[in-house]
Structures are given as structure tokens and as C-alpha cells.
Design a protein around this nucleic acid. Structure first.
Lengths: 148, 148
DNA sequence: CAGTATCCTCGAGGATACTG
DNA sequence: CAGTATCCTCGAGGATACTG
């Protein structure tokens, strides 16, 4: 299966992976969430090829994750902003940070804090009904007949 | 930057990505979380090359995400089980499902339910201190001086 | 500054045959 | 059944020069 065929499969993991599951996309998004919205600073910070970055920004824009907005007139320049669909990827990004903090680094390179209260933002799996915190053993999965 | 160089960078996102950020790893883990622990059924369901699957299982085992356990004697056979470090990836997997459900599919191919209560498991970003639900605008990030 | 256009490399992944 | 061994392809990504 080629990478782009993931988008055709009836699985939400695969379909999401078709959008973010390559070497650079999540790191580009990390920069955007961090407040970098422009081509040059992102390219420089990541050390990514310019053609590759251009391709990623285009595909994220096509997918509706980013929005390309003009910020200057002469010459016309654009910056990239998260759409609501893009903002919805924030828990995913924090989940990546959280797992890395717990298992892949000694001391966390980034510290997150809830503005005001100062507490630590955490991604947790909870039941929308009873609000219990859940592990995978508390969860039962039912697959649709046409699920991949 | 080659894929494996992600592991050397001082960023929890990149370090996590070094483990799960390729075409197949999260889909292999999806199968394991689903209860498939053996080579043959995973290979068949995913349609992944046997050499590729073997390589992924080995790297996940090396990283301590999976554990290779003998389940038969003659001939000796092994199955792959999630370690606690691997179980910690469950919120990440659910985050992928959740985003895909919301934005990439019409009807969710998999339905999750909290055993007993029947409610929907959800990944949410909350403050560990005050328990408020947070968006990225509520979060302030502070970078260590040596952060990538 | 924000890309596009080219060219190139290399390694991830596919396919298949084989083995204990 | 659970891999290993080989060979091969192709496309993602790197590098660099160029442009409005």
C-alpha cells in the first residue's frame, strides 16, 4: 500500500495517518502551534528542504488543516494559520509530547502550563458519560462490517 | 535530517516520532491494541511486507514498546505484547481515531465504549491542577535553553 | 521573503522464495 | 507459522540555483 492509499481505507487511524503520518508534517505543525506561521522561519528552524516544506504546507492547506492568509500586499506574502480542524490536532501533539517526556527524554525540553492556574495540561482518556479515567482495558471496540 | 536522527534531537515530539512516525508503526500498534499479537494475522490484515513487519516488530521491541513472549515450545513461537510503555500509547491511538472520526470519515468505522457505563471514551486536554478543559490558547509553553 | 524548478540519492517498503 | 534472505522499485526527501 502506498502512503496515499491510506486515505482510501475505511479506518480513522489510517485516514488520519494519510494526513499527518509522514516524516515532517507533525514537526511542521509543532512549529505552527508554537506560533511560527511563515515559510522562512519554519524552514530554517527545522532544516527541512524548501521544496518539501512547500509540499507539506500545500497538502495541509488542501486538507483544510492550515489556511493560507495574505499578510502583506507588495509583494503579496502569505502566512499559514490553523483552521478549527487544525486546532483539533492539538491534543494529538500534546499526546506526542507527553509520551516523549515520559519515555524518551530525561528532562522535558518544553514545559507546558495552564495560563493563570499554572497547572500542567494533560491528555487523558476519560469517559464522556461518567468522567472516569480509562485505560484500554476499560474500552470495548466494535467494528463496523466494512471497517478495514 | 534522516528519520533516525529524530531520536537525537532534544524535542519530545521528534523523539516520539522517531519511534512511531513511519508509515506502518501506528497501524501495527492498532492491530496489537486490537488484540492481534501474532505475526501472521497482523501481516495478513495489514497487507504489509513480511520483512517490513519483522523490522517494525523488532524496533518496537528494541524500544520497549512491545515484549516478545514465547507462547509455544515445539517449535518455539513468539507473540508480541504491549509493555506499560506501549500501553501509554493508547491515548495517542485514540486521538488519531477521534480526529479521523471528526474530520476524515463519514461514519466512524470503529465504535468505542466504556465497558459497563457504555459512555464514549474521549481524549481531552485538561489541567491536572484545576481539571479545566483546555485549548491551545490556554496553554503557555516554555522552552528549555537547549530545546530543539 | 516565499516560494518554484531541477536534479539526485538513498532507503523504505513491496514481492517472492526459502527455512526451521 | 514466524520469520529470514534477496532483489528491486519508486518516491520521499536533500541540495542548490533561480525568480517575482
Amino acid at each position: 500500500m502506498r502512503h496515499d492509499e491510506l486515505a482510501d481505507v475505511n479506518c480513522s487511524v489510517a485516514r488520519t495517518w494519510a494526513v499527518v503520518g509522514d516524516r515532517w508534517t507533525m514537526l511542521v505543525l509543532r512549529e505552527v502551534f508554537r506560533g511560527q506561521r511563515r515559510f522562512e522561519p519554519i524552514a530554517e528552524r527545522l532544516g527541512i528542504g524548501r521544496n518539501v516544506l512547500a509540499a507539506r504546507l500545500r497538502s495541509l492547506t488542501d486538507e483544510g488543516v492550515l489556511e493560507r492568509v495574505a499578510y502583506d500586499d507588495v509583494p503579496v506574502r502569505h502566512e499559514y494559520r490553523l483552521t478549527p480542524k487544525g486546532e483539533d490536532l492539538y491534543p494529538l501533539l500534546v499526546a506526542l509530547i507527553q509520551w516523549g517526556d515520559a519515555h524518551q527524554v530525561d528532562t522535558p525540553p518544553v514545559t507546558l502550563a495552564h495560563r493563570g492556574c499554572g497547572g500542567t495540561p494533560e491528555v487523558r482518556l476519560r469517559c464522556a458519560e461518567c468522567d472516569d479515567e480509562l485505560t484500554r482495558r476499560d474500552v470495548e471496540a466494535t467494528f463496523a462490517s466494512d471497517a478495514w
